[in-house]
Structures are given as structure tokens and as C-alpha cells.
Design a protein around this nucleic acid. Structure first.
Length: 289
DNA sequence: CGGTTGCCCTGGGGGC
DNA sequence: TGCCCCCAGGGCAACC
């Protein structure tokens, strides 16, 4: 269940292995993940130089140089492309060869660079996706055109959040999961940010203005920064991009802690689980109003 | 407009 | 010990 911090961690993990290198070989073991791979996916990626590796919302964006592989005389004019990778729920990118005793079940794509590095993408539930789009078309792509601000950027301010929420009658929890309001929050960090700011997930989004917007903005940034610092923390069986063992040090205050005492010592409340829009929300009814 | 549900998918856990 | 059902979640579509 990679959310923004986990995707950011993966990006930071793979970036040094990719930028400036060239993809020399791809292995694609099935025709689709959540959506079909683009036509001629492997051929269109092989030979391309990697200019940058970035994150937008929960998407990994790998910029590929437009210079086609130099087939003498048949060089085609083409612009940069963006390899889009979404990890979905269970997607992983692991650096290095697969160990001999690993059957590689659910390992769908293997990238090899001109440095000999392999990066393997596995995704048991196949909620992830890969796509290839022209770089100049990325901003117009429906997946990106409507995205809200990056929560850790200076563009994400209390005023911006308050404006995005003004007049909205949906719950603040649902609003935080709406990627048009703020990009990259998922179920876990939405719960945690609301807890940290003392705002009830059931509160009408439009009423989060003024001081509440200030508190929520700060809480979102804080929760995400802490998670990134911890190396990401939102998956029980997460494996870092480097292929090292996963981490278990989730420090969630409320997520998946139904019935446990509210970690905020003063209120003596207990974590409650409700369902909003078909998704579990965890919060402390005493502390969050 | 908002809300709910379903779909894609598999592994793991709870209940019986 | 086994089996079945449900649940997890991101993003999107369908529907009331």
C-alpha cells in the first residue's frame, strides 16, 4: 500500500542506479497489470537514456531521452518520453538479481541498465501500472492534469487547502483522499494527518478553514516528512528499493489500531474504526472534533 | 453534487 | 486441520 512516502523512498532508492544510464534490456512477462502495457513497450524503452527519476503524487516518472538508438541513417526524430510506473497496492521495485531460491512469482518486469544493474518489478495483486507517454503530453494526461499540489511543496499552504475545501460537502477524510485536493495521500496518512491535527474524519470538508486548515496543512507535511525519514512505513511487508529487508517500525497513532487507547495521553479515548466510502477510517472521537 | 458500490487481484487472517 | 469468506487498498466507472 505504497503512499507518497513509500513511493518517494523508492524513487530515491532507484534514482542513483538509473539517472545517466541507459536501459539495454527489458523482460516483460505478461501483457497487462491493472491496464495493458503500452504497445511495443520493451522495444520503445530499450536503448533509451534515463534523464531523471521523479515522483508526482504516487506515480514514479522516469524521463527517457528522445534520442533514438543510433541505427545509422535511420535515426528517427522523437522527443523525450516518460515511463510512468504506479506501484498500486503491492508493487515493488527491487534492485539486483533475483536470488536462486526465489521463484519470482508475480515478478512481471525486469529492467537492465548498461551498468549491468537489474531492477525487478513485482506486484502480486497487479493494481500497479506501467505506461509510456510523450513528455510534452504528460501535463495534459488525465491522470496528471487534475492533480492537486504536492503536499511537501511550498505550493501547499493553508490558504490553498482551505480554498480547495471551501464549499465541499464531502467529509474531510474523503477530501484528503481526493487527489485533486492534495496529491499523494492515501488511506493511512489521511487518517494519521487528521489525528495529528485533531480534526474528525467525519467533519464536513468545507468547514476546514482558518485555524483548522493551518493545523491540517502542518499535520500533513509533518506526517509525510516523518514517514519519509523513517524510510516509509505504510506496508507491513514492504521491501525497500535497494532490496533490503522490509521495515516494521510503523509508528501509526491510529491506523489499524481499533480499540486501543488513544496515544494522546490526556484524552483517555479509544481508537474507533468507521467505514467511509467503503474504506476504513481510524480516529479518536474524543480528541478529533 | 455526493454517496455508495463494484471492479481489477491475491494472500492472509478470522470464524466455524 | 481445513475451508470459505472477507478484507486490504488506488484509481476509476457506474449508478442512485
Amino acid at each position: 500500500m505504497p503512499e507518497l512516502p513509500e513511493v518517494e523512498t523508492v524513487v530515491r532508492g532507484i534514482r542513483p542506479h538509473l539517472v545517466g544510464r541507459r536501459f539495454v534490456r527489458l523482460l516483460q512477462r505478461r501483457a497487462n497489470l491493472r491496464i495493458p502495457f503500452p504497445p511495443r513497450f520493451c522495444e520503445r524503452v530499450e536503448g533509451r537514456r534515463i534523464l531523471s527519476v521523479d515522483r508526482r503524487a504516487k506515480y514514479i516518472l522516469v524521463r527517457l531521452d528522445g534520442q533514438a538508438p543510433s541505427d545509422a541513417g535511420t535515426r528517427t526524430v522523437m522527443g523525450d518520453d516518460i515511463l510512468i510506473i504506479h506501484l498500486g497496492m503491492t508493487g515493488r521495485l527491487v534492485i539486483g538479481p533475483r536470488s536462486p531460491d526465489d521463484p519470482g512469482l508475480h515478478e512481471h518486469v525486469e529492467f537492465t541498465t548498461d551498468a549491468g544493474t537489474t531492477i525487478r518489478f513485482s506486484d502480486p495483486r497487479r493494481f500497479g501500472l506501467m505506461d509510456l507517454v510523450a513528455a510534452h503530453e504528460l501535463d495534459a494526461d488525465p491522470r496528471f492534469a487534475g492533480l492537486g499540489p504536492e503536499p511537501l511543496s511550498d505550493q501547499f499552504t493553508p490558504d490553498v487547502l482551505a480554498a480547495a475545501l471551501a464549499g465541499r460537502k464531502i467529509s474531510i477524510k474523503a477530501a484528503l483522499l481526493d487527489q485533486r485536493v492534495v496529491a499523494g495521500l492515501g488511506n493511512i496518512y489521511a487518517c494519521e494527518a487528521l489525528y495529528a491535527s485533531g480534526i474528525s474524519p467525519r467533519r464536513c470538508a468545507g468547514t476546514v478553514q482558518g485555524e483548522r486548515a493551518v493545523r491540517l496543512t502542518a499535520a500533513i507535511k509533518d506526517v509525510l516528512r516523518r514517514a519519509i525519514a523513517a524510510g516509509g512505513s505504510s506496508a507491513r511487508d514492504y521491501v525497500q528499493a535497494s532490496g533490503e529487508a522490509g521495515w516494521f517500525q510503523h509508528a501509526w497513532a491510529v491506523y489499524d489500531r481499533e480499540g486501543r487507547p488513544c496515544p494522546h495521553c490526556d484524552c483517555r479515548g479509544f481508537v474507533k474504526r468507521i467505514v467511509q466510502g467503503g474504506r476504513s477510517t481510524f480516529y479518536c472521537p474524543k480528541r478529533q472534533r
